[in-house]
Amino acid sequence: MTEACHSQWQYNFAFLDENTKRMLRRALLKAVAIPGYQVPFGSREMPLPYGWGTGGIQLTASIIGQDDVLKVIDQGADDTTNAVNIRRFFARVTGVSTTSSTAAASLIQSRHRIPETPLQPGQIMVFQVPEPEALRTLEASEVETRKLHAHQEYGLMHVKLYEDIARFGHIATSYDYPVMVNDRYLSSPSPIPKFDNPKLHMSPALMLFGAGREKRLYAIPPHTRVESLAFEDHPFSVQRWEQACALCGSHDSYLDEIITDDAGARMFVCSDTDYCQQQQEGKA
């Protein structure tokens, strides 16, 4: 190939070629039909590193269209570097409009959070997933975890959670807290804080999960039962803060702790920057 030909290089709409999109789309349809089940797919190398959202990016690339309005967040914020980079990538290869408003977005790609603003019917959430296998830390072999899912054999996870209770008095998992989807598949909600788990249950939005490096994707359709694992005498509960957000005063959002000086002074602010903004504007 000549240099002249390379400098003229034109990427397809949304970067991926149409064959790759079709492969992903077929896999997504199966994922929706089997809620919470991890569908293997022929993940491609993307122009962002594995572990930096390549699964989410491939899913978004396979579903995004010219009419979409895209929001990208990392840690709840639209302005974190990786979110900026991914949003720029899609702006460059699709030309679609982007937004930081949860309500205005038709497509939201996220790492580690679900927005505080309730999702609407028709919206699609795309999660970036580092490790799609909820059982992986308990069983390293993919062959074995496949068998466990096939037999709905989730005793390992219950034992692990119960050992937490025996040792600490409660379940010591604070994020990536395992869920049962549609009473059948044990799934990873991705490393969202367990604070966000209840937002998955019977959500009106479609939730798609992409793990590029691990080459698997899965889905939670709208209006689907999603239960965080728990025991009768140790029901599931979420994080709470004594403080309100220092910027907007919200008592209901997930807070980030920020160290403000060398003496260790700190403040708590919403991790969801769009939500925080809305709350501040609402009060003004």
Partner: peptide
């Protein structure tokens, strides 16, 4: 327009299986 029309039809199919 194969690229845009296929995307539109796919989104409709995805929505149809989701609901």
């Amino acid at each position: 327009n194969m690229v845009q029309d296929c995307q539109q039809v796919f989104r409709c199919t995805l929505a149809a299986l989701a609901e």
